[in-house]
Design a protein around this nucleic acid. Sequence first.
DNA 1: GTGTGACTTCTAGTCCGTA
DNA 2: ATACGGACTAGAAGTCACA
Lengths: 77, 77
Amino acid sequence: MKKKSTPSATRLFFARNLKATRERLGLSQEALAEIAELHRTYVGSVERGERNISIDNIECLAKALGVSPASLLEESA
Amino acid sequence: MKKKSTPSATRLFFARNLKATRERLGLSQEALAEIAELHRTYVGSVERGERNISIDNIECLAKALGVSPASLLEESA
DNA sequence: GTGTGACTTCTAGTCCGTA
DNA sequence: ATACGGACTAGAAGTCACA
């Protein structure tokens, strides 16, 4: 766990959408991390809403999941 | 100028949408920066697609403009 | 009112381990 | 396969002087 302070709403939406989309595709965090070229533990941390992820990595993850970056930020995914 | 390397597509969409939305509201970069509680030059730099902005600041700017964070990432805004 | 380079501070992001 | 901690490095955050 790295971040606690102010888990912004958007960050939490992203976390939930990321996890939901990943599981829908039957991917593990490890597998997703490898596709997105990010680290295993980092992806897990993002899914827990602990990280203030940057736009480039949002795009990386969105691409890895085959969805649009915008869709991962929506409240009602 | 800060960033050259790989201006990701999403970053550029965000940059364009941010600028377009701001101008539609008749705000200057300075004014938007003040509302979003960010620095003038930082906002300008983001609008030029030079910064790999994080999700928290995306939310800040989206709120300042009265739009959803997701809408600022869409290609056809 | 905006563009830009340089700069410092702080955290995003990596990698090791352990559970 | 996932969570979490510690320690580290890369890079985002944030500011300024000047154009």
